[in-house]
């Protein structure tokens, strides 16, 4: 299991290959990559703030819970902070399991939890000004299914 919090950009393809190369006995790998979107147009940067210390421990706890709840060979979580541009990678998760369903379900669980339980906050800076991205009710209610 690997959890990384970093400002540096990373290559999700290379990360996925490295993850897949070392899993043992897993027949299924699922990965998700999150990319900065320019939703309203005119996005200059997305600033991601986080809570150093708590971020790492929260992600670690979420990944450990996934490892316990599903039959997983391994799990990977990488999340960036700092100033990002539209089109840049923000984060990725990958899960490896003997079975496809465990790999898909645990990847969705990781995404749902790190959306509203990992201490990151996004601010969109555009020519019109700067606004904190508001949490969505549906992100909170997405946790109920787990």
């Amino acid at each position: 299991m690997q959890v990384r919090v970093q400002s540096d950009i990373f290559d999700p393809g290379a990360e996925l290959n490295a993850f897949t190369a070392v899993i043992d006995g897993a027949g299924a790998v699922v990965s998700f990559s999150g990319i900065v979107r320019d939703v309203a147009g005119g996005l200059q940067t997305m600033e991601i703030e986080h809570y150093p210390g708590m971020t790492e421990s929260a992600l670690q706890a979420i990944a450990e819970e996934a490892m316990q709840r599903w039959n997983l060979a391994d799990a990977l979580v990488i999340h960036r902070y700092g100033r990002l541009q539209a089109g840049e990678i923000i984060m990725m998760v990958a899960t490896a399991s003997p079975h496809r369903k465990d790999a898909f379900d645990s990847a969705e669980f990781l995404m749902d939890y790190l959306k509203s339980r990992a201490p990151f906050w996004k601010k969109e800076v555009s020519s019109a000004g700067a606004d904190w991205v508001a949490a969505k009710d549906e992100d909170e209610s997405a946790l109920d299914r787990w």
């Binding site: 959306k115 509203s116 990992a118 990151f120 906050w121 904190w132 909170e140």
Partner: peptide, 23 residues
């Protein structure tokens, strides 16, 4: 993460923030 009625007994650090927007 906790609630506003949580005890501060022995606490060293308290943080306040809006709902998180990771992912």
């Amino acid at each position: 993460l906790t609630d506003f009625d949580a005890s501060l007994s022995g606490a060293r650090e308290v943080a306040f923030f809006p709902p998180m927007t990771g992912g």
